[in-house]
Structure formats: C-alpha cells, structure tokens
C-alpha cells in the first residue's frame, strides 16, 4: 500500500495530529507528544522570563516540528512581527498565523489573516493560517501562498465540537491544500468524524489540556484520528435512504 503522508510546505509527516502545548505542565509535554504520536507541536511567543523555570523547548522531544503561532496579534502587522521573531529563535520556518481582535469569542480576523499570510509566504515562511471556514477566504489564502488552511470547528477552547461542520466539508471539497481542523474539537469522536470527512489533520489543545488524564487523552485522540483517516481512505459504506438490507443470506432458511 502506498504510504499515506501529510505534506505541508514540502515537509512530510506520518502523524495527522498536531498537538497544542498550552495550559498544561511542560513536564507532561514529552509523554503527551509520545502518546499522541505527534510530529508537530504548536507554541506561543511571549516576553521571556529570566532565570527560574525551564524553557519549553527543553521538554519537546527531538525531531518534533515546531509550529509557532502568532497569538496575541490583533492585526496583520503584529502577526508578521511575531512570526519574524519566532523564526529568529531558530526553530524552522513554520508559522500558524492567528489574528484575533475579538476577545470574547476569539474568532479569527480573516481579512487580516490573508494579509499576514501573503507577507509571510513571500518571506519564505510555511504559513498555516487559522481561519473562520469561509470558502472565498480559503481560496484567497491559497492564492497568497498558504501551505495549509486551519478552519475552526468551534470557538477556541470551547470543546464544543464540529459546529462549523458543513462549511469545513466545503473547504475539504474545494481546497487543494491540506485542511487542518483547529479549535473547538473537544472529543476523540469529533476528531475521528472530521478525519472521516477527509480533513488532512486535526489540531487539538484544550481537549487534551482539560482532560482528566492529559497523556491518556493524547493517546485517545491519536487512535481516533488514525481510525478516521483509515475510514476516509477506505471509503465509507453507503447509507440507505429508507428500508433495510439484510447482512445475512436471504436463502437457505431452516423452515424452507
């Protein structure tokens, strides 16, 4: 069987689970990454603390691709500034563009996201924009050089699941780049469902960080994402519009 790989900006990944690193103890990162089987992990950029606590980079297993986000950016200019600083730390060219100026629902500003994506793609970044699932915007992101699109399933951190399902489905059908569902996925079953639909990958943070057992939940998501991917590649069985279809032979009954 042909190897099933996720390709983003020319880089190949076997895992289709992008793990977030927010809101849990850095000391759990190594175990969470391993249980998740994740090859990519998101990070945020903030003012550095001197001394004291260890740096998060010391807890991330070797070989895992870092995906810095531009959280905190309220417009394209701030996103570009954060992305450039993140790249300067020297951990690769990937960036998850995230531009948010709505502090209540944390919804992405799609038009500023397009602007930031265009600038950063031209500077050689591998840009993965977080977006509200709008087909026109996704097409614009493709045209300005995005390497994937990351539509939200529900508001960040809500664990509400596939609220935008129908619109994500449209993106999967129409956009040739990897469609990576980000934000709002709360349970493994929802991650599985979106993979069955043909999403290229799932990104999850809060669902793991707020679970009773963080490391075990990372493993549960891994299994769900793999199951959904296999189901998608297998081609789901058909659904009858009405009636039934026997699974056992309709001949040779004992009473005949």
């Amino acid at each position: 069987m042909k190897q099933d790989k996720l390709v983003i900006g020319g880089h190949e990944f076997e895992s289709r689970f992008i793990l977030g690193s927010g809101k849990y103890n850095v000391e759990l990162i190594d175990a969470a990454v391993k249980h998740a089987g994740a090859q990519m992990i998101t990070l945020a950029l903030r003012r550095a603390n001197s001394e004291g606590e260890g740096n998060i980079l010391d807890y991330i297993p070797e070989g895992v691709t870092l995906l810095p986000n531009t959280s905190g950016a309220r417009n394209a200019e701030e996103a570009v500034r954060i992305a450039r600083l993140a790249r300067e730390i020297g951990c690769g060219d990937f960036v998850k563009v995230e531009v948010i100026r709505d502090s209540k629902y944390l919804l992405p500003d799609n038009s500023e996201t397009i602007k930031a994506t265009e600038i950063l793609a031209k500077e050689g970044f591998i840009v993965m924009p977080y977006m509200y699932p709008d087909l026109n915007v996704a097409r614009d992101l493709v045209n300005v050089g995005a390497s994937a699109v990351m539509p939200l399933a529900a508001p960040i951190g809500s664990n509400k699941g596939l609220v935008t399902k129908e619109f994500i489905k449209i993106l999967i059908e129409e956009i040739d780049l990897p469609v990576i569902v980000d934000a709002g996925i709360g349970r493994p079953s929802q991650a599985c469902e979106v993979m069955e639909m043909g999403a290229a990958a799932v990104m999850a943070n809060t669902a793991i960080a707020t679970a009773g057992d963080i490391v075990a939940m990372a493993g549960a998501f891994k299994s769900a994402i793999e199951a959904g991917r296999s189901a998608y590649l297998s081609g789901l069985g058909r659904v009858l519009s009405s009636g039934s279809a026997a699974s056992s032979p309709l001949t040779g009954f004992l009473q005949e």
Partner: peptide
C-alpha cells in the same frame, strides 16, 4: 537583532528592547 550580533550590539539609554521566547500555546 540577529543572534550573531549579540556580542556586538551595545544597549543605549534610548533603546526599547523586547526579549521573547516560546511558551506553551495552541
């Protein structure tokens, strides 16, 4: 400021400097 210039660039009284690093995030 590129890393290779850390040894050369001298901080002045008028400078505004940001020192950033990675933290956990989603």
């Amino acid at each position: 400021i590129p890393k290779k210039s850390y040894e050369e660039v001298i901080i002045t009284e008028a400078d505004t400097i940001e020192i950033v690093s990675f933290v956990g995030g989603g």
